[in-house]
Every structure is written in C-alpha cells, then in structure tokens.
Design a binder for these strands. Sequence first.
DNA 1: ACAGAAATGATATTGAGTTATCAATATCGC
DNA 2: GCGATATTGATAACTCAATATCATTTCTGT
Lengths: 125, 125
Amino acid sequence: MRQRTSLQLRTIQQVFESSKHPLLAEEALSAAQRKLPSLGIATLYRAIRSLRNSGFLKVVELPGESTRYEMSCKDHHHHFHCRKCKRVFEVESCPAAIKNFKLPDFVIEDHEITFYGLCTSCKDA
Amino acid sequence: MRQRTSLQLRTIQQVFESSKHPLLAEEALSAAQRKLPSLGIATLYRAIRSLRNSGFLKVVELPGESTRYEMSCKDHHHHFHCRKCKRVFEVESCPAAIKNFKLPDFVIEDHEITFYGLCTSCKDA
DNA sequence: ACAGAAATGATATTGAGTTATCAATATCGC
DNA sequence: GCGATATTGATAACTCAATATCATTTCTGT
C-alpha cells in the first residue's frame, strides 16, 4: 500500500505514540499541525488508514461518539468518558467478573465497557 | 408539540412495544410499513421524536453503530451484538461487580456494556 | 358539512465524517 | 543530482442519518 515514508506520516504516528488517550481525527490533526502547520486533513486520514493497515492503529468506538484512534499495541482496556470535558481516558483495569460473565443463550466472545462520569480535573473543579 | 394522534403514530408506537430488541430507524420503518405500506421515512422520524419527547422511547447507542431506539420503561440492562446476524439483543442481567467498580481518579456515574459474540440462532447454525 | 389546523409523504437539504481528484511537491533508487 | 513516481494539500464530492420544505390529506370542533 504505502511505499515511501514521509515527514507527515512520521509526525502523525508520533502524535498517537505520545497521546495517553484515543484521539479524534480532528484532535490528531491539531496535534500534528502544531509540528507541521500545513498538514492537511486528507493527509491525516490517509495516514490513519496506512497506520491501521499496518496494524499500528486501531479504532475506538464509543457509544454515540465519532471514531477515535489509538495505538493497537495496548493491552485490553476500557474507556472513561468525562461528561463535562468530553475527553476520553483509558481505564487499564477490567473488572474480573466481566471476563467470566456468562449468558445462557449467547456465546460471548468479547465485551466493551464505557464508563461515564467526571475525570480528575473536572471532579475537583 | 404533538396535538393529535394518528394511525401512523400509533402504528409506530406498537412496533416498538412489540419488539424485543432496540430498532434502527430503518428496521422500525419496515416493521411499520408492514401495516401501513405508504408510511414515509419523515413520518417515522417525526414519530420517533415525539415518542422521545414524551418519554416513551429512548436512544440506544452502540459503539460504531447507528442509533437504535427502544422503550424507555425497561430496567437497567445492556446489549448483545451478534457479529454474524448483526442483530442487537437485550441482556437483562448486569454483572453485579460492575456496579461496585471503583476507579482511583474518576467519579463513575454510569456505565455501558456491549457484549459481542454469537446469538442463539447463529451459534447453532 | 365545513373551515382551520395538524399530520403526512415525497423529496430536497443539511451536516458531520470521510474519500476522491488532481496539480504541485517530496522521496528514493540509481 | 536526476528522473520516475509516491505523497501531499486544497477542495470537491460522497455517504448516511436526520431534518426542513411544502403541497396534499386527514382530523377536530362547531
């Protein structure tokens, strides 16, 4: 697919490497533009596609939210969505009970949990 | 908002009353059209809005999926998304552990769980 | 039955997110 | 460094869910 590497691609990759939470396309664009102000939205989406194809990035979908992206090398985790600042944080622990959760009529292969509430900054503000 | 009731509205309401799972606009439309073939998409969306305003319907958002709607009178529950037939089922039980789940830096006010796997029909097929 | 108002249905429009187009630019093997 | 070509950036175009428009139909109170 991609045959050459470019400053733009490397910059976008670094944005995700240095982010502690999954990013919206918009957020990734702003972050990348801080280093390369002329970087365009098309390039951002092209880079995201490359990085997904190469397995570097994966999609993070939260209910009712637009798509976010994060590095795929992370361990199994869930997300916390602050209802005040709207930011999404990673929740590293996964309630053990959920992994052993069984349902009579279904074969559970995976699960996704989204927590809602207030993040540290917002709860103290 | 709405001042008169109509056959269309009643039909759409019945569709949700008799459905065991949350419905996409598309699905609700097809179901309603089985009784009123001429019913249009605009009427469907208008009815959904009315039924939401009146508190009868609520929104169900699943990660990466378009909006579904279900009756809001149901108890706290979660959803199961069959990766084969793509249908969404209700999961009435909620793992107790999740309600008591705490995180050091966050105030958890709510949670949303989506299970993925195979439903009864698909696991046996 | 009639007039006024509300609801319908067909369709145009919106808006958000994403992809396609294409001339200009940057990259890489030689 | 040069030439071939992959990538970029600006922007047009697309997709999909949802809403607005508006002429027509239906309902309701008198």
